[in-house]
């Protein structure tokens, strides 16, 4: 390649915030439009490096529908310096975007099967695009299910859209919370307590599962699913690690032999399941 003229992959493209939605107390969703060129297509499960002027970059999953690449949708929780700056952005503000990066949810490959999404808390954000994709072709899947767990009713992300998926889009939706609150009439308990019910009468060998949530939740969910007969090669998880470059250069996201930024974040469970049980790897 011509090094002199190549685009440095560490330099972001400028985007502008189009809309902002307050999701939860500390969580906002924003849509972004490119300033410097055409929008770049992405796949569900991939992520971008979002740059807040003068503060820094963070890896944030893409939550938009890949069928609508004109707008980038990102959901961010305020947990640190960069994410605080990102959640402070308002319509019209400029930010930097590098990406899209990483592996994606192989949602097309699961046609004909029972497509089950298991999300824990903010883990629904990286799954949202894949759910949209599956529901757009609902009849090509035996079943489309979402098992969504959160700490409390106040932590349920995309609440109205989740309800819509269940009511009008043909998804089988189960929502559960770890701790109920006044007015909560739904299930109480961690997601693993609802796995048998959401699988229903499906042949477990014909079930495909995408899981995203805290590492311990993904580990036990995948473990229980395999015990219920779902093939380990039909389960995918999305990993999170510290990332500075998203290019495989900075070394921060290494997880065993994998760079989460480019070999992941979506991994097939049969290839990494053992590693999920190793402490501090």
């Amino acid at each position: 390649m011509d090094a002199a003229n190549a685009q440095d992959p560490m330099v972001p493209h400028r985007y502008r915030v189009a809309e902002v939605w307050e999701e939860l107390d500390d969580v906002t969703t924003m849509s972004l439009l490119p300033v410097d060129g055409p929008p770049r297509p992405f796949k569900a499960g991939q992520f971008n490096m979002l740059y807040a002027y003068g503060v820094g970059e963070a890896a944030i999953s893409i939550s938009g529908d890949p069928a609508v690449p004109e707008r980038l949708i990102h959901t961010t929780r305020n947990v640190g310096r960069v994410s605080a700056a990102l959640t402070r952005l308002r319509a019209g503000d400029m930010l930097g975007v590098r990406g899209p990066f990483g592996s994606d949810w192989p949602v097309e490959d699961q046609k004909g099967r029972h497509m089950l999404f298991v999300a824990g808390g903010l883990g629904l954000a990286p799954l949202r695009g894949a759910v949209c994709q599956a529901l757009a072709n609902r009849l090509e899947y035996e079943e489309v299910s979402l098992l969504f767990g959160a700490r409390s009713p106040d932590d349920l992300l995309y609440r109205s859209q989740v309800a819509e998926w269940g009511a009008f889009s043909g998804a089988n939706v189960e929502v559960t919370v770890d701790m109920a609150a006044r007015g909560w009439t739904g299930h109480v308990g961690v997601v693993t307590t609802r796995l048998e019910r959401i699988l229903g009468t499906s042949d477990p060998a014909n079930v495909s599962v995408f899981i995203c949530g805290p590492e311990i939740m993904m580990r036990f969910t995948a473990q229980d699913l395999t015990e219920l007969g779902v093939p380990a090669s039909r389960i995918w998880v999305s990993m999170e690690r510290n990332m500075k470059c998203a290019l495989g250069f900075c070394g921060h996201c290494q997880w065993g032999p994998d760079f989460v930024c480019k070999d992941g974040p979506v991994f097939r469970y049969d290839q990494i399941g053992k590693r999920l049980a190793i402490r501090e790897i």
Partner: peptide, 12 residues
């Protein structure tokens, strides 16, 4: 130069 990305500064 890892097959996916090139560090353009290093390459130069």
């Amino acid at each position: 130069d890892n097959g996916s990305f090139t560090d353009t500064d290093y390459a130069r």
